[in-house]
């Protein structure tokens, strides 16, 4: 075997090995599955209903920024940030930013009381089956996805947000 042939053979084998390993590592890190939410990728579409039975489909909001917030009545930071979210919603809804607040599937009664107590004006939809939470990999609460007007996930925020944070996020997804 000539030296050149040997080099070609070795390069081929090493390349194959590197490709196989690269693929495996990529699939593991990126989660690999196309239906799971990931920053920089298209936000997985979903359909959820609010308490009155209105359907909300994420893809209908193409052209608008979507502040997709997941919450529960038992989550303390959620209670703190909801009023601030509502105030910012009043400012940004005319500038093309929509809030969709997804409840994690609690009893209707609890959700309704919460909406009334906090006087929420943005749409609150309920993920009863947990499918949307699974698709977005939600854990723990609160969790917020920022989705731009092209339907691409710009950022994923967990933990407490204050009003200044929320305002900054709204600016980022304003079309």
């Amino acid at each position: 075997m000539t030296k050149k042939k040997r080099l070609v053979l070795r390069t081929t084998i090493l390349t194959l090995l590197v490709l196989a390993i690269g693929f495996t590592v990529y699939m593991n890190i990126a989660g690999g599955r196309s239906d799971t939410a990931e920053v920089g990728k298209k936000a997985p579409d979903f359909v959820l209903k609010d308490l009155d039975g209105h359907e909300y489909r994420l893809s209908d909001y193409r052209g608008k920024g979507v502040f997709l917030n997941f919450w529960g009545t038992y989550c303390e930071p959620c209670k703190d940030e909801m009023p601030a979210m509502d105030r910012q919603y009043q400012i940004y809804k005319d500038q093309g930013v929509e809030i969709l607040a997804v409840n994690v599937g609690e009893a209707e009664l609890a959700i309704e009381k919460f909406i009334n107590d906090y006087d929420l004006t943005f749409p609150v939809i309920v993920d009863e089956s947990g499918d949307v939470q699974r698709a977005y990999g939600i854990f723990p609460l609160p969790a917020t996805y920022l989705i731009n007007s092209d339907g691409i996930i710009v950022d994923y925020i967990t933990g407490r947000m204050d009003e200044a944070d929320i305002q900054e996020y709204m600016e980022r997804i304003k079309p």
Partner: peptide, 8 residues
């Protein structure tokens, strides 16, 4: 039946 979106 068919494609189902999460939540649907």
């Amino acid at each position: 039946e068919g494609e189902v979106l999460p939540g649907e």
